[in-house]
Amino acid sequence: MLDKDGIAKRIAKEIKDGFYVNLGIGIPTLVANYIPEGINVVLQSENGLLGMGPFPFEGEEDADLINAGKQTITTLPGSSIFDSALSFGMIRSQKIDLTILGAMEVSENGDIANWKIPGKMVKGMGGAMDLVASAKNIIVAMQHVNKAGESKLLPKCTLPLTGVNCIKKIVTELAVLDVLPGGGFQLIERAPGVSVDYIRQATTGKLFAEDNVPEMIFD
């Protein structure tokens, strides 16, 4: 079973040289720490920055330079700054190669719910609805089950949707799964030491698994 950094590390393997990538808040943010050497990626922050750098050194914070999580950050050689409309223009026109975001639920037809729990304080969707509606390649990083022990991979989402039919890949502490075009989760890899049966128990949606599902390999 992986910890959060393990999930981030496994997702980082999906990033290819030359990718422009948008990372959501939470586990997705950690992915930046595990991008393999020799892979050049540009991180987009939807508040208006391409080429997000690491956090600043203490004393060098700039209140005018933040990411979408409102954290102080830095730029890098080759960075660019733009306004919010242009930022979502590059998202909508699919210039961003990969979006990685968290989720509360994913359904077997690729629907995602991650912005609202009815009856609780609703904070808003931020840029998530724009990202999932337009991205050509979305990976969900999340825990396989919620705090109550219920599966987050479902036949149908129970929470209000963020987007429909848009998720293609999910990485959890237990597994890597693809969402099949015809519906259902295809088990691609198991976390080290986790059995197919265990994953099946934790997955309420339709799960397809070959006979020999490989374990994840980390360098």
Partner: peptide
């Protein structure tokens, strides 16, 4: 004032 909401830094 330019208040910072999430002051995040790394150490040298």
């Amino acid at each position: 004032e330019k208040r910072i909401e999430q002051r995040t830094v790394r150490t040298k």
